[in-house]
Amino acid sequence: MADTSRPRRATPSTLRDRTRQAMRAEVSAVAFRLFAEQGFDKTTVDQIAAEAGLSRATFFRYFGTKEDVVLGDLEDLGRDVAGRLAERPADERPWDSLRRAFDALTDFNADEPENALAYVRMLYEAPSLKARHWEKQQAWQELLVPEVARRLGTDPAAAEDPRARALVSSALACKDAATDAWTACNGAVPLAVLIDRAMGALTA
Rank of each mutant, 00 (worst) to 15 (best):
D17R: 01
R93N: 14
R88K: 05
P127T: 08
A116W: 05
P156E: 12
S170N: 08
T14C: 05
K175E: 10
T19R: 05
A188H: 09
E37Y: 04
G72I: 11
D46F: 03
R61W: 06
E87I: 05
S128E: 13
A22N: 01
A118Y: 00
T58G: 06
Y124P: 04
L34H: 05
S28A: 14
A177H: 06
G64T: 09
N115C: 09
G64K: 03
V168R: 02
K136T: 10
E112N: 13
E75L: 02
Y119H: 15
R24Y: 08
V148I: 14
A171I: 04
G64C: 00
E87K: 01
V45D: 05
A57L: 08
P146R: 12
S13N: 01
E37L: 11
N109Y: 12
P113W: 10
D46V: 11
R24L: 13
E75C: 03
F63T: 11
F40N: 12
R151L: 13
V81G: 01
A25I: 14
A177D: 07
D107Q: 12
M1R: 00
R197H: 12
L144I: 06
M122D: 06
G64R: 09
R132S: 15
D176I: 01
D41Y: 04
E87W: 06
A52S: 07
F60S: 03
R121A: 12
D161H: 09
D76F: 12
F60M: 05
